[in-house]
């Protein structure tokens, strides 16, 4: 509760580098929207990836109230948020982006995340839901093609790809391009088309694999509750409304830009879409489902979310 005329400046640590389209489309947009709607009373000061805090530390800094706002991937908050594994995307669960949208907003998964984050004094708002897709140097036409691949991966997907039979290894982002170029790995995932294009991966890997490895709320905006509660009530509501609206606008816009980017690299860089053959897809789905249950063991909350997810997928006719 402050006087109505007071102005606030928030430090915002992004996990996107400045050249990433999300930096402009998500953060600069939010900055503009909040500035307009609060009539200049809430200013966001944006910092590019790593400027103040590394991505893995941003949640802690926001939780302590050292930063007022930040962006992260759920996987960076794994130690605090037991739902983070499910939020960062179980492999081969959703088949369309709208399904994940409905899971978050219609079935209440977003609220579950928000409740867990609130225990750490963080207001959680998923920025958008989008697919993670692989790019590879040679097409997958059968199961042997898949298992002979060396793929750069990380986190849950690395485990999944390994258990499914490919050789997945972790290589830091800064060495990814050279690794693909020289053939240390034959494939990688870095977001989907936009991510791969931003890392120039299509220069050295010409096949874009579909369907997605997962579809999930991989980008999240987090706000310090301490900072939020310092705002006058009308401004608190403006922030929350803007974040709710952001989810729908950004998910939709991101999908549009995905297709745009893919069309562009197909036309200009000779990229081909490699749709996985049915038998490969089926085997991958089986391997994936065997892994899901592990995420449910993280906590009571995670089990509840996983059961909800399974019920939902059954309802959609996928299980």
């Amino acid at each position: 509760p402050a006087t109505a005329q007071e102005t606030f400046t928030w430090k915002v640590q992004s996990h996107w580098p400045g050249a990433s389209s999300s930096y402009t489309d998500s953060l600069v947009r939010l900055q503009r929207v909040l500035d307009e709607r609060t009539e200049g009373r809430l200013k966001l000061k944006l910092y590019e990836a790593g400027a103040l805090f590394k991505a893995q530390e941003t949640f802690n800094a926001v939780s302590r109230g050292i930063l007022e706002m930040g962006t992260i991937s759920p996987s960076y908050a794994q130690d605090k948020i037991s739902l983070a594994g499910i939020a960062s995307g179980l492999p081969f669960a959703f088949r369309n982006v709208w399904e994940a949208e409905y899971f978050h907003q219609g079935m209440g998964f977003e609220q579950m995340l928000r409740d867990e984050a609130a225990e750490h004094n963080v207001y959680w708002a998923t920025d958008k839901v989008y697919p993670t897709e692989m790019v590879i140097k040679k097409p997958i036409n059968n199961w042997d093609d898949f298992t002979s691949l060396k793929i750069r991966s990380s986190g849950v997907l690395q485990k999944f790809l390994t258990e499914a039979g490919a050789a997945a290894s972790y290589i830091p982002g800064s060495e990814l391009y050279s690794a693909l170029d020289s053939g240390i790995v034959d494939g990688a995932h870095w977001g989907a088309a936009q991510g791969a294009a931003s890392m120039a991966l299509y220069e050295v890997a010409k096949y874009h694999v579909q369907p997605a490895l997962n579809i999930a709320g991989t980008d999240v905006i987090i706000v310090s509750m301490k900072a939020l509660n310092k705002l006058p009530e009308d401004m608190q509501q403006i922030v929350k409304d803007a974040l709710d609206e952001q989810f729908w606008i950004r998910t939709n816009e991101y999908l549009y830009k995905e297709r745009l980017t893919l069309a562009k690299v197909i036309a200009e860089q000779g990229v081909q879409v490699n749709v996985l053959p049915d038998d490969v897809q089926n085997k991958l789905v089986k391997a994936a489902q065997a892994m899901w249950d592990e995420e449910g063991e993280r906590s009571e909350n995670a089990k509840k979310a996983l059961d909800m997810l399974k019920g939902y997928l059954a309802e959609l006719g996928y299980l």
Binding site: K159, A167, A168, S169, Y170, I171
Partner: peptide, 18 residues
């Protein structure tokens, strides 16, 4: 070891680099 596992055996480990 990681180079050996990945290049010679086509079986990178999950633990060496980390």
């Amino acid at each position: 070891l990681e180079v050996g596992f990945r290049y010679l055996l086509n079986a990178p480990t999950v633990w060496t680099n980390e």
